[in-house]
Design a protein around this nucleic acid. Sequence first.
DNA 1: CTTCGTAAACTGGAATACAAGTATCGAAAT
DNA 2: ATTTCGATACTTGTATTCCAGTTTACGAAG
Lengths: 237, 237
Amino acid sequence: MPRLKHVPLGFDLAEALAGVRIDRAQPIAPQIYRALRQRIVDGRLPAGTPIHENDIAALCLVSRTPLRAAMQQLANEGLVVTRPQVGSAVAGRDRARFLEALFVRTAIESQIARRLAKTGLDEAALAPVLSRQEDAARRDDYATFFDVDEEFHELLATMARVPGAWHLVQSVKAHVDRERYMLMSSIRGRSARAFGDHLAVLAAIRAGDGDAAAGLMTGHIESVLDESFDRAEGPLD
Amino acid sequence: MPRLKHVPLGFDLAEALAGVRIDRAQPIAPQIYRALRQRIVDGRLPAGTPIHENDIAALCLVSRTPLRAAMQQLANEGLVVTRPQVGSAVAGRDRARFLEALFVRTAIESQIARRLAKTGLDEAALAPVLSRQEDAARRDDYATFFDVDEEFHELLATMARVPGAWHLVQSVKAHVDRERYMLMSSIRGRSARAFGDHLAVLAAIRAGDGDAAAGLMTGHIESVLDESFDRAEGPLD
DNA sequence: CTTCGTAAACTGGAATACAAGTATCGAAAT
DNA sequence: ATTTCGATACTTGTATTCCAGTTTACGAAG
């Protein structure tokens, strides 16, 4: 049986896909997509894990059709690699792709910061998100800060009237988030630092200094580089 | 029969899809995707054209399965809108989406210019593309200049070591290209002007002036705005 | 004549069945 | 013993079939 080997030791696929609950009343493909994406990002599906459409479909109790739709989107984002008539697998962590994702994020989000410096902020919409961030930062709870951070950046894109740009950022963000998840547990005080970054960016925006806001945003996004990427350099396919 | 009406008068779908030739020896879905995308961009499939999967599949002599894969990608890029259980149609021209696409292009490509100002250019790879541009510009042949322009921008992304970023730009570029196709025939000397823009950007890059290069690139990309978008403001769905 | 209800038919979504291609494993020959 | 050739089995890709939801059209009633 020419199944792709290199399954990371006694790794149980069923366990990794345990918590997949499908709401049959809603479109299935996006649900499968989100479930797989989340599991790839947080490491429950490590790089190199073979993705056999039949197996996954059976484990998730869905047919191959919606699964394939999800797989195609995943492949389009570079999260899985699929060789026709051979098989698919979770894409290996690739430094070049990671740096590209970082490039795209900084390019788009720094431009968003620049624009907001001209157009101004919607402080009313910002306040609740900031308060949640402050709370998470105070408790140094990076797991929830992770989610609130997402909210924050999305809100900025919405305020800049480019929600579609945020959609695009999300499609590459997975590669950044994979690294962030690796680093999450090891760093202390990381939430507080990120929160500080946010406040600095906002201050520059309020001051109307577009260049400064863009630079601070770039630095904030690239701060993930500070915590040694190389340490986690895993094996590539 | 609850088929989506509003077919643009006596518009023949079969004629618009006349030149679709499928190479059965290669994956079908990408071929269908490219064919439809091109026809939407160049106007052969006008905004609002209903896309009935059965009809299209029959006209292209393929099954619905690969067609649906193409449609999903098209929908993801916003080129077609699909209401579940109702039907799909070519997306209407949307000024907001167009401006967003422009925003993303300028954000990424100006950043590419900035980076190249630091890292330098690969003049050897650049030369042939430039010569083709000059030739097209001299003949004021905007149709072929259109293609060479594509090459140029892609080459810049490759030289900046972010080919994936270009892939992302392409996914939004369709919305910009739709406008460009509208304006193509009406403007004279447009190729020469665009070529001049390119030379200016390259000069700034060679001079190592990142800010200037970024600004020139932004101006070049946004030059499509000069030729009155509003003139072609079509009906929205 | 207008409005509401019902039914039919078309649509997209999912599941199943079929075809083509490749890598692996084994056997045979050198 | 090693290398090469062939068969087998598993994979993705494509086609076909089936199902459920929604909309529109038609008819009846007020």
